[in-house]
Amino acid sequence: MSAAPKGPDEADEGQCDSGIESLRSLPKEDPDGERADSSYGSSSLTEPPWPWPRDPDPEPPAPDAPGLGLQQLEALTYISEDGDTLVHLAVIHEAPAVLLCCLALLPQEVLDIQNNLYQTALHLAVHLDQPDAVRALVLKGASRVLQDRHGDTALHVACQRQHLDCARCLLEGQPEEGRGSLHSLDLQLQNWQGLACLHIATLQRNQRLMELLLQNGAEIDAQEGTSGKTALHLAVETQERGLVQFLLLAGARVDARMLNGCTPLHLAAGRGLGSISSTLCEAGADSLLRNVEDETPQDLAEDPLALLPFDDLKISGKPLRCAD
């Protein structure tokens, strides 16, 4: 039996409009009185932030934002089938004038709506490397602690993408009075892989990002959530001696332990990283500490003598030289 043809006023259920320039084609209201929103962070907007009547006959109440009509308010609070608001779309389409208009007219709660991927407009601005948009969103109080589907905050994304200017805006920007975020920026917050921002910056071998994070309060000896590695352990795994030296000079604990008891020297010795092992030993690493397998770094080293804490060893009266 064929489906009954649609009337002239009936909308196609599969129709989607996510473009900024086509807001005039948006439906005025869903027949069920509900709005498409798949994000867990936007439950406060299940109903529109400005009240308007469901019966078109009564006189509509005056809107909170002066000078805006009913259709303009509906457009500003539009949410696409992907969960994107007009603020998301302004960032995606790189439309700063539209973004600034939204920021001037919309309440702070709208800025923190998360789309179907749990991304806020701030996540997208960082991902697309738009520091001016990041700065404007932070100024208006956009949350910097909301996490996307991977558990990443906007700052995690900045570290992964190595967008230094965006990271600086997130760390140093302050919301204007009356627009403050409910939660302050937490630099120890971990994503679903157990990584804090400093861990990500270290894995990316980005010393400038690492320095910026430490200057703004990142805990240098914080352990990641899966195996308990610190940034120094991760720096050893990158095999970048410069990163290891940087962290040691910044105050990293040289004998920090993983959950299995391994120190950075265990990792360096087990990987045959002679120069990094020497750097750790010069910084005071203990080559006799044992992990849960009862192994010391000396047990794991290809040349155990290279890790001995003595520089005056002699064999048959001749000094023993350890290779760097």
Score class of each variant (00 low, 15 high):
A121G: 06
H123E: 06
V91W: 04
P56A: 15
R135Y: 01
Q108C: 08
R54M: 09
D57Q: 11
L86P: 00
A125G: 11
L100I: 01
L128H: 10
P53Y: 14
A104L: 13
S42Q: 09
S39A: 15
L124K: 12
A136W: 10
P131I: 10
R135T: 12
R144S: 11
L106Y: 00
R149T: 13
L105H: 15
D55L: 10
E47I: 14
V134G: 01
P60A: 14
D148Y: 01
A104I: 01
D148F: 02
N115Y: 03
E59F: 13
L70I: 15
L99R: 04
Q147N: 04
D148K: 04
T77C: 12
Q108M: 08
Q114F: 00
P49D: 07
I113C: 13
L111P: 05
P107Y: 05
Y118S: 13
P61C: 03
E81C: 14
P58A: 14
L105Y: 09
P56H: 11
A95R: 11
V110N: 01
L89A: 08
R149F: 06
N115V: 03
L137M: 10
Q114I: 00
V110D: 00
G141L: 14
G41L: 06
S80P: 02
D129C: 05
H127A: 13
D64Y: 10
E59A: 14
P60Y: 12
Q72M: 11
V98C: 09
P131C: 10
P66Y: 08
P131R: 11
W52Q: 13
L117S: 13
L73F: 05
R149L: 13
E59G: 02
G69H: 03
S38C: 15
L89H: 01
A142E: 07
L139V: 15
G141Q: 05
P131W: 10
D57I: 09
R135P: 01
H123K: 07
I79N: 00
G83E: 08
L89F: 08
V134W: 00
G67R: 05
L73P: 00
A125D: 09
A125P: 11
V98D: 04
D57H: 07
P131E: 10
C102Q: 01
P56M: 13
D57L: 05
V134Q: 02
S44Q: 12
D57S: 14
I113D: 04
G151P: 02
P51E: 11
S43D: 07
E81L: 09
L86A: 02
T77I: 00
G41M: 01
L146D: 01
H88G: 04
G69E: 13
